[in-house]
Design a protein around this nucleic acid. Structure first.
Lengths: 333, 333
DNA sequence: ACGAGTTATGTTAGCGCTAACAAATAGTGG
DNA sequence: CCACTATTTGTTAGCGCTAACATAACTCGT
């Protein structure tokens, strides 16, 4: 910076002023400074700036370290939103799914001096770890947590999973299905719990028994495994539709039903959740629930940067049902 | 740090020594310092440290900002490898796929003072932008670039896409197929170009005509569109197998063939590339090529941190074919 | 027990920047 | 044309840390 000041014939402070866009710099001076900067290829040292301002212009993202569609999409959206607002983004993922890992990851970000943290890890143990950590750092959690502590300084942003599940279930009910099984996601995940709850609510409202089949994780292999069992229930007339907690599980289901010689949607309807890029091309095309990830990203960042002092109610966004070929009226019995 | 020194009854320098694990600190002193740190909940200021050491312990990752399986998996792997080695990771993605965006993104990282950059954006225009930028920063590019400039200070790490394509094609040839169409990925992507080339090599070696069908992007929708056309060729006996540039395209193909009433693999064999989590559950299960992403991540990071001064030959990893139900011998004609 | 050789600790300076204040210059009304 | 205000520029200090050097405190061998 001293070099730039020398070339431009001003003091380093004036250079700083130009760089920060402060007023009270004559136009001619500003131009000379910018010229000198350009000529010398000068770049401001962010560490020194951070040291004196006590702000790093960096936000941390804590995410589950896997290829889950929802979290992954959210992270991308937050990153894009942050970049658009001139922030740097530091990403850290969970090594394992336990409270210890969550704290390690959180500390990793705090050590880095981030100005705020967006948590994209909709796991109960992560939010618990955060509650315990009680950091004095602006923090936004993207997770459909139903019981946000009242005085929690942390802000919540999420897509209403329960609403999505109700839309999916109501769609099936509307087609005439009564025996709708839910293949639920793994325990400990808010999204799984909320989708399960939404399904239960709709089933209860319709006066139907809610029979659940739990999948061990979010992947197609689990969906297939559960689907193999469900195929027998379908054949026995014990189920006419399945609502899967996500599209990967639905892939496994479709496959299992196909292997069992069952036709979707003639013998059994299937609904997923997430709307993958390729869900429209499954066999058959999958009816599913789409989430507004880009909006989640923007909202989360806005909450973090602008609403630092306004925890208040969580920001809830609404998903929408996408009806395709995997659902139809139940076979007249 | 001064506070800690006060509590421990030592100078701030001794605290610094303890923190950095330097020798020549008596055990008792070290313990007192650690105790004081713990008691005060002290955290070292990274900005100040970065200022004086001129190193940020942060590496930047430049990636395409989309949900592509390969890049996404690679980023996760690099992040995990970096964390394991105590580095912070700053991620930036391309706003658009043009040279300008690439430079903006690269500058964004440089401005941040990263110690090195890993580029996970296997696009020609990105490597060109990097060549032009000629930054004096350790840099590793994860891209199957066939013509790495000799004196390039940038290191390359990649999975041998050509080998994967040859394995896929040779598998089909071995089954007896002669008319094997390749559905190629979008132009401008190294992976697409290399897979195309590998397929051509194998076809040429077998003395077969290589008929290509270009997809506009990497997604299932394009695969479906191309597949609709290919279905007619298959019916006309002009093709007996299709090698898709990735699994998403393959999904679209499977769907198109299904709609056309063609059986896979009886009427036409299909091979993909990437081995998605769910590829084993497609209908039929997809024969595809699996890439060692975790190894790519580790190798890239090792190259960045350890081999700063040894550009040399690119680090090439090898993918492996996974044979499943979507391939079989051609129908005897 | 004394000095040479080690090892442990303290002192000083400065990394590059911005905040706060001081000085200089330009602008304005009487 | 001068006193006075508004604007522009310069000067100084210090953010929290580490490198380099200075000093103090221990070892030992003789």
């Amino acid at each position: 910076m001293a070099d730039v000041a020398g070339v431009a014939g001003v003091s380093h402070q004036t250079v700083s002023r130009v760089l920060n866009g402060l007023p009270n710099v004559r136009e001619g001076t500003r131009e000379r400074v910018l010229e000198a900067i350009d000529q010398l290829g000068y770049r401001r040292n962010r560490a020194a700036r951070a040291l004196v301002t006590a702000r790093t212009s960096t936000i941390g993202i804590l995410t589950v370290g896997s290829e889950f569609f929802g979290p992954q999409s959210t992270v991308l959206a937050v990153e894009a939103a942050a970049r658009a607002r001139g922030y740097f983004v530091s990403v850290t993922s969970l090594e394992r799914y336990d409270a210890d890992s969550a704290l390690v990851a959180l500390n990793h970000l705090v050590d880095q001096g981030v100005d705020g943290v967006v948590v994209v890890a909709p796991l109960e143990l992560v939010t618990e770890a955060i509650d315990d950590a009680a950091l004095s750092l602006p923090m936004v959690v993207v997770a459909a947590r139903p019981d946000v502590p009242a005085a929690d300084p942390v802000q919540y942003v999420f897509v209403d999973q329960r609403s999505g599940a109700r839309q999916a279930t109501d769609h099936l009910l509307g087609l005439g299905h009564r025996r709708i099984v839910h293949v639920s996601g793994p325990v400990g995940w808010f999204d799984a719990a909320e989708r399960l709850r939404g399904w239960r609510e709709s089933m209860a409202a319709a006066g139907c028994d809610a029979v659940e089949a739990a999948a061990g994780d979010w992947f197609a292999a689990s969906g297939f495994e559960v689907g193999t069992r469900l195929a027998r229930q379908v054949s026995a007339g014990e189920a006419t539709a399945v609502f899967a907690a996500n599209d990967y599980l639905a892939i496994g289901l479709l496959r299992a039903f196909w292997e069992a010689g069952l036709s979707v949607p003639d013998d059994v309807s299937v609904v997923g959740f997430d709307d993958l890029q390729s869900s429209a091309f499954f066999i058959p095309a999958l009816t599913t629930v789409r989430q507004p990830f880009a909006e989640v990203g923007r909202t989360a960042l806005a909450a973090l940067l602008d609403g630092a002092d306004a925890p208040g109610a969580p920001h809830v966004l609404t998903p929408s049902l996408v009806v395709r070929g995997s659902t139809g009226a139940p076979r007249a019995s």
